[in-house]
């Protein structure tokens, strides 16, 4: 049986599951607040690749990321988790490139390394590179299967996957390899229980980085100069004023207004509740009463 080469696309994202407070001018998020992590869906895809490799013994995994130093760290964690090789693509002209340019760069890597199966997460936590896999697949002329719940089997140059459709429907798809499969995150905490020797090896080995010229691309084709979509400005989202904390009514109107504008509103978010089982149950019932989720 031929060796199966699996490539996993890894994107570094800003952890946007926590509040990202804006700077004093309210223009952009505070840089200290933005923590770069591996896109959870991509990490899940890597775990799927590792499982797949465990099932079929003759296969190897290469992790591919596009980005600067934060991408390098993400890739090192992928190596620690068990990927055989890592490849970083970065070029100064990619900083301002659009999704088409970045997709072409990834496509160039994929056409050169000719993996049989390419995995990535479906969706991207911070939405910045969410189109990347699709664009890369089309630029490389690969089939693209998004919204995959699980991979059933990979054999004889075919992959059988289960796709999620609307209203809980599922479809089983057979796709001819090479193909790019975007896997939906199943939830749960991403584990990073890499063993220590693997971790040390991952953080001591040199990490190759390919620029556009190594990939036979030019800044005009893939970089910022070729970008058809340009970012003019990024602004933080306005907080969802779900539960405004009412300021003290005894304050003068001007101060009340300043309180509201400055932080009197709490952004809507998940809540970790603690307490005795009775208190927890009460809080959950209260939550369902106040939120229009189910009728109680």
């Amino acid at each position: 049986m031929r060796k199966l080469n699996i490539a996993v696309l890894i994107r570094s994202v800003v952890d946007s599951r926590v509040p990202l407070p804006p700077d004093v001018y309210g223009e952009k998020p505070l840089p200290e607040g933005m923590i770069s992590i591996v896109n959870p869906a991509d990490w899940f895809a890597l775990e799927c690749a590792l499982n797949l490799r465990n099932q079929m013994n003759r296969s190897q995994i290469v992790a591919i990321a596009l980005g600067g130093e934060e991408a390098e760290e993400s890739l090192r964690w992928c190596l620690a988790a068990g990927a055989e090789r890592a490849l970083r693509i970065w070029d100064r002209s990619l900083v301002e490139a659009d999704q088409l340019g970045r997709g072409k760069a990834v496509a160039a890597v994929l056409t050169r390394s000719k993996p049989d199966l390419i995995l990535c997460g479906d969706g991207c936590l911070d939405q910045i590179n969410s189109l990347l896999p699709g664009v890369a697949a089309s630029a490389a002329g690969l089939s693209y299967v998004p919204g995959v719940a699980r991979i059933e089997k990979v054999e004889h140059g075919m992959a059988v996957v289960v796709r999620k459709l609307e209203k809980g429907k599922r479809e089983r798809v057979m796709v001819k390899l090479p193909a790019l499969i975007a896997i939906e995150e199943a939830g749960g905490v991403p584990s990073c229980d890499a063993d220590l020797p693997g971790l040390i090896a991952a953080f001591t080995q040199p990490m190759p980085c390919k620029g556009l010229s190594c990939l036979g691309l030019s800044p005009e084709r893939a970089g910022s100069r070729g970008a058809k979509v340009n970012n003019v400005m990024t602004r933080v989202s306005r907080p969802i004023t779900a539960r405004p904390v009412t300021p003290d009514h005894r304050l003068p109107a001007e101060q009340r207004l300043r309180k509201i504008l400055a932080g009197g509103v709490v952004r809507k978010q998940g809540e970790v509740i603690t307490g005795t089982p009775e208190q927890l149950a009460d809080r959950i019932i209260e939550f369902f009463r106040s939120e229009p989720v189910v009728m109680l």
């Binding site: 952890d15 926590v18 509040p19 905490v189 709490v266 978010q269 970790v272 603690t274």
Partner: peptide, 10 residues
């Protein structure tokens, strides 16, 4: 707990 909502936990 209202304040800890602003903190990042894993």
């Amino acid at each position: 707990s209202q304040r800890l909502k602003f903190s990042r936990y894993r």
